[in-house]
Design a protein around this nucleic acid. Sequence first.
DNA 1: GGAGATAACTTATCGGTGTTTAGTTATGTT
DNA 2: AACATAACTAAACACCGATAAGTTATCTCC
Lengths: 234, 234
Amino acid sequence: MTSTAHDRSESRPDRPGSGVSRRRRARKGEGERLRTEILDAVAELLAEKGHKDAVSIRAVAERVGVSPPAIYLHFSDKDELFYQCCRAGFEELSRRLEEAIDGAGSALERLQRMGRAYIGYALERGVQYQVLMTSIPPESVSPESLRDDPGLRAFALLVDTIQEGIDAGEFRDDLGAVPLAVAVWATVHGTVMLLLSKQAAEEVSSPVMPRLPSADMVVDAVLALVRSGVVENR
Amino acid sequence: MTSTAHDRSESRPDRPGSGVSRRRRARKGEGERLRTEILDAVAELLAEKGHKDAVSIRAVAERVGVSPPAIYLHFSDKDELFYQCCRAGFEELSRRLEEAIDGAGSALERLQRMGRAYIGYALERGVQYQVLMTSIPPESVSPESLRDDPGLRAFALLVDTIQEGIDAGEFRDDLGAVPLAVAVWATVHGTVMLLLSKQAAEEVSSPVMPRLPSADMVVDAVLALVRSGVVENR
DNA sequence: GGAGATAACTTATCGGTGTTTAGTTATGTT
DNA sequence: AACATAACTAAACACCGATAAGTTATCTCC
């Protein structure tokens, strides 16, 4: 047979007996270990490449030390893989938002803390936030896991806080809690997306983005805008 | 030569009866005609599929009635093709923003008209807006065409309007015109991105997005928020 | 009108991608 | 030691973006 085994000389150092570079096969019960290893590899590669399309399933498999089809033992397709990766850890967002709410202070102060927490966490997540927010979850993810989506819980927290502010006579009551919450959400979401774009553009030194102020300054301005709008300072 | 002109039996080429199975080759001077036909096809497919990754160069070529490599006579790669497609027509945005500015009224009224014009235009553009704002322009596009990017011009218009509002004592002066402009931009940008996500999720009836109010209601709330913030109505 | 020149394409092909099918191998159980 | 099966791998398929090399139609000039 005309050794079609492999003619790629670049990375094929391991004989089955050497036991050096390949990952040890998981034991019988712990097949789930691979799942988290895959998710970690995706997160790594996503952060390195900065873009979803630049990360291939083959690259993920190679980083984990496994063959590409092994991925499909845990994820139905690439979309679900990336969705699950970006979604994982977003319970942390609800946690931080609750933490921001819990402290003392007026509803406005709580709202501002929530805003800072949201933006800070999203910027930490970077590409993962972008991917999660710009993709609709694939059909393969179970409906019940969607029902308690961290994003939905976070939005509920926001609505609650705003409703409290309205009830306390602290926030305006002419729009309704939900529309106002959506508006606030849109604001912080747009801030994150803009800052991430700016960040990505700067890494390639592309002059498309206007010269924006520092992230801190932008966040301060946004929160001030959420507080009292553009109108004359009072 | 054994006419290998077309042995593709998989997909019917075009109307066999109408005599035009393939596109007529352009005449010597008018090679540029293909360029706009390609851009139109990309825009069509983008709107149909709703997602950039779902549109292949081969599909574009087939729609135009041309072979895939013909695309590369006018665009250096896929990124540039999609960038140019989404960027084309965005001069219209600056035009509409100027129109919104020109009318009578306070700086606030002009700003609100700008906001409505921006959001309206971006929602009309849909996927094209999303693609344009989430991708950094490829290196193949010329720097001088980047210098007068419609996005940059639009942002300058926004800064000007806000500066006028500040000078007139109508807008707050504690943040500076540029940070305030960025904050306003982030708000409308986030609104657009959110509404587009909602729209896309509804087309697949996915329950991830919170049940949002209608687009009109959201836009009204956002503009009200930009005006005077969340604080108690005055 | 014929002979180049060349603009406007096409055919064929390459390496890479997501995904599926059909195995193979290691582990736990009896 | 034999079996069952969890945890994988090898090979292949169809498609993709992109390139190199060839072909064909149009224009120009005599």
